[in-house]
Design a protein around this nucleic acid. Structure first.
Lengths: 177, 177
DNA sequence: GTCTATACAGCGATAGAC
DNA sequence: GTCTATCGCTGTATAGAC
């Protein structure tokens, strides 16, 4: 991965999370990275290809993060808390979740991206369910759905109000008995 | 409100909920309604004005719906269920929540729209809290936050998977205790 | 209130030099 | 791998006739 390609993905990721995938252009991207728009087409032939690359990168990163947490944090509740912290960090950067954003814009993304988004959230729900199971919940599948839903929805509200603490408050409910 | 203006709002509302506010143009709108783009500018001087009109209309409609439910449905749990049904209907139309969508695209909407979105969700949280309170929950404020968060987040996942039942499953958790 | 006509900037995308 | 140059189209928006 060249330096430029990484920078392009970094900026595109941030712009997608803040303004939506349809809320920025190749020119926005080019100016921030310091290249011409034609150079972007070298790395990502079409904007749809860029969307795919964004989802794939974040999916890979999150799967890797899940693996690291499993290996390094010896407590399921703390592992879940680590993910919550990531989302709280989004609020302070005025960001929504990348895959949440593309899911919102669902009808304007390619079939390929749609498939990847389903996989992303399926993996996330599975991992969360595993943690909840370890925590002793017998309804971990359904509780995981509730957890991930609350996470996405509360992030939306938290960013709207500039108050990251809304995420933790919303999730309290889900962790109760 | 002229017939054309209403039709424009109807189509714009649907396109916003399906593709996002940045995912359609005045030309898309014009072709579907059967007018020229210049006519749209007569009703909504700028696209930002259109966004404002969309939020105001849906806010008014939902506040009215809350009032009607309060007056006509003699059971808080059933009143909540009616709102859930509205969101389940979105899934079958491949729609996200209009204000949820604009909240996702938060950084690309005007300050005026941002303020309206905050009011919309504040009103919704208040009304849901009132219902939860009537249902005997003592933590109605926080539970309402969790309810609305789950509603928005599960709608995102439900549409992604074409499965409206995910909404009810996610909310089960919030109604427990 | 809707139209024609038009302005003009922006869009994604491509060809070909370096 | 990045550039210049350019294409054709689409974007929002306006002026003025009807």
């Amino acid at each position: 991965m060249t330096d430029t390609k990484t920078k392009l993905l970094d900026v595109a990721e941030r712009l997608t999370q803040t303004k939506g995938f349809n809320g920025f252009s190749y020119l926005d991207l080019a100016e921030e990275v310091g290249v011409k728009t034609s150079s972007i087409h070298y790395h990502f032939k079409t904007k749809a290809d860029l969307a795919l690359a964004l989802v794939d990168r974040v999916h890979g990163a999150h799967v890797a993060a899940f693996g690291q947490l499993d290996a390094q944090v010896p407590n399921a509740e703390n592992r879940l808390a680590a993910i919550v912290e990531v989302f709280e960090g989004y609020v302070n950067d005025d960001k929504f979740c990348l895959c949440g954003m593309l899911s919102a814009e669902f009808q304007s993304v390619s079939p390929a991206v749609r498939g990847r988004l389903r996989t992303y959230f399926q993996d996330m729900r599975s991992w969360v369910a595993k943690q909840l199971n370890e925590m002793g919940f017998t309804d971990s599948d359904n509780r995981s759905l509730s957890f991930v839903s609350s996470l996405e929805g509360s992030l939306l509200l938290a960013r709207l109000n500039g108050d990251a603490s809304l995420i933790g408050s919303a999730l309290e409910q889900v962790k109760q008995n």
